[in-house]
Amino acid sequence: MSSCPAEHELAALAHGERASEEIESHVRVCAACQQHLSDVQTALTHLRVAVSRSHAPAAPTPALAPSLRPSFVGKYFIAGTLAEHSDRAVYRGAHHLLDQEVVLSLARERWTADVATRATVAAESRKLLALRHEAVAKVLDYDLVDDRPYTIEEFVRGPGLDRIVESRKVDWIDAVNWIGRLAAGAAAVRAAGLDLPQLDAQHARLNDKNSPQLVGLAEAWLVNRVLPLIADSNGITAQPTKAGSTTASSATGDDVRQLAQLFGELIRLPAGPVTITSQALETAGVSRRIAAALARALAPASDGGAKSAAELAEQLERLASAQSWLRRLFG
């Protein structure tokens, strides 16, 4: 045989079967055919392994399954799912014109009727979009895609305070600074007449400047303002949102209570619905000079504590300055 055999004529050898004597003689002396055979055998081996793995029983630790989600929502690229709820999905995404990542909260239900209300809500969204405060993640967009409303908020890349609380006790001076900043952010949201998300560790993240920012404002607005309208428009009874998820913090006094609780979590005060006392603060390492004033600021309003997030922010800022002054004075 002078010329090389066709591929299918080599197939028998590739499968470990006998071919004609003429073909086998040729392959024994032909480097090209030997290489070709080797390539085919390698490819077949890979294929058989892949097929056997695809049909193998599930491993003891199941593989992480990618969730079903769109690769784009409107003009936003969706990189992954942050949370799934019965009435909305929360995605992490990006936009090719924006130099930042975003959190996209998308309603599951379509909002087809009630055009006038849709327009009113769109107009209301402007104050959400206009809000700018260094301790609040920016809301960047509100729109509808296929009649499903969605909000866009900047993605704060740093760790959530929930992860920090899990991993370590925060120095109390840092905690005073952080809660003071979050209180200032919460006050700005209230001043704009907007609902807040829960003021808990899940809704605060440290940005790249190690400064805390409230996150989830856009989602909270979608949940509290838009989704009930969709449910109403579609004749569905709105389901109460589960505890721990994004709901409105209803009263300004409640803001202070939640922030005080978060402070306690950060410095690892004993858990429970307790009033923060100066003794507890001292036990947690707070300077004696500051503990009483700090306990007073974080106390319920009825016990002389701050009456609003704005007041708490002011008091904590004063305490942080005093601590800084004392430190300079006494070392």
């Binding site: 990189a79 992954g80 799912t81 990006a94």
Partner: peptide, 14 residues
Amino acid sequence: VQDVVQEIFIKLYR
């Protein structure tokens, strides 16, 4: 793990 994979897809998109 999910967070890292999301980072990768953002990088790929860019």
